[in-house]
Computed example of a mutant assay.
Amino acid sequence: MLTISTAFDSGAIDVISLEDPSHIRLNLRADNAAPLRQWFHFRLAGTAFRECVMHIENAGQSAYPGGWTDYAARASYDGVEWFTVPTSYENGVLTIRHQPQRDSVYYAYFEPYSFERHLQTLGHAQVTGEAVVQELGQTVDGRPLDLLRVGTPDAGKKKIWIIARQHPGETMAEWFAEGLVSALLDPHHAVARKLLTEAVFYIVPNMNPDGSVRGNLRTNAAGTNLNRAWFAPSIETSPEVLLVRDAMEQTGVDAFLDVHGDESIPHNFVAGCQDNPSFSERQRTLSATFKAAWLAASPDFQVEHGYGDGRFGPETLTMATNWVGDRFDCLAFTIEMPFKDTANLPVPDVGWNGERSAQFGVSVLTPLLAVVRDLR
């Protein structure tokens, strides 16, 4: 008997019909309080090694239908090792074809990052003795919103803020944060050691714990897109942003990175705050130095493909990178990674995944070192 379950962390799919393994009919499930859908994560059991053909029939009504072209779904038997499976998109329907080699298998839009792993990463960091975990407050659902400080505050040290996963379905962002934190805590990582003599890191690995557990794509439990709430956050609908903004006001910010994933563009890239009326030549020079150093450090980074200027119009200062860059007159970037594989260095068996995201997180320390002494 075939069954589909989603009763676990980040589980999300709606079942239309499950009688025939060669014609399983599904729908993407919307965020709990917003009409946005793209994320899916479910367990299919009872396959008995038969070929399964799953049709996600409302993929054309997803938040980013352009993201389905050249996309491949991820699958796993144990929730640890993930691989790509044949996927096609036609006439608004996303079709996944796979003959499982075990009786149960997980499928997901991208390699998940569980809240349990989030807590374990924080716990591991604080027992090293090099990091401090601070609960800034609580989310709409009452989960802790945690800040990880790495390094010892001291006069003259720069303050580098990094946040990830404002959009909960962009799980590559938290894999990126895990890789970066691991490198910062590695006593043998020379770049990290040097950076920590110059700077203190303030890291929020998951800005949206509620949306992450609920299996949302872009919003928190109140239905708020956190990356459009930075100009005027509220304790009722966007406490996560308000709490982080308040903490930033206490510490100051000399550099800021906001880590995301992009559904459509098969490249890693950054988007700065050059659309801000306050954008200065100093910020422009810092941005150019940062990008040049990252290009030299990582073949996974590129600057030819990304967002054009003026893309977000009147929403600009509601977004984290633009608001922080304006408020603190600092280097500020949004980092985008793909849901698809990278076009320049593809790995078709796994696509862009958690491990590659984590390695990319490590690599960002090199461009930060290139600019740290020139930060305010």
Rank of each mutant, 00 (worst) to 15 (best):
A332F: 03
G310K: 10
A288R: 13
T318E: 15
M337L: 13
M337N: 02
A332M: 08
A332K: 11
D309F: 05
K340C: 05
G325A: 00
L317W: 02
R327Y: 04
F312Q: 01
F301D: 10
F328S: 06
L295K: 09
K340Y: 08
T285N: 05
A320N: 05
K291S: 11
G306K: 04
F328E: 05
R327C: 12
F328K: 11
L317Q: 10
T285E: 15
G308C: 09
D309Y: 07
H305V: 13
D329F: 00
H305F: 10
G308W: 09
G310W: 08
V324P: 10
T334I: 08
P299H: 10
A296G: 12
P314S: 14
T321F: 00
T289W: 00
D300W: 14
P314T: 15
F301N: 10
S287W: 00
H305L: 07
A288N: 10
E304T: 14
F290P: 00
V324G: 12
G308K: 11
T321K: 14
A296F: 00
P299E: 04
E304H: 09
H305G: 00
L317E: 13
E315I: 13
N322W: 09
K340P: 04
A296D: 05
W294K: 03
L331P: 07
S287F: 02
S298P: 06
S298G: 07
E304C: 01
A292Q: 14
D326K: 15
Q302I: 01
F312P: 00
T316Q: 10
A293D: 03
W323S: 01
E304M: 06
D300F: 12
K340F: 07
I335V: 15
T285G: 00
M337F: 05
T316Y: 11
P299W: 03
G308I: 09
P299S: 07
C330H: 05
D326Y: 12
F333H: 09
V303Y: 01
A297R: 06
T321V: 09
D300H: 15
F328Q: 07
G306H: 05
L317F: 07
G308R: 13
A332P: 06
F301K: 10
R311Q: 12
K291R: 14
T318W: 14
E304R: 11
A296V: 01
A292E: 13
W294C: 03
R311T: 13
D309Q: 12
R327G: 06
F312D: 14
Y307A: 02
W323C: 01
M319P: 07
H305R: 13
P338G: 10
D300Y: 15
F301Q: 10
L317N: 10
P338R: 05
E304N: 09
K340T: 13
R311E: 14
F290I: 04
V324D: 08
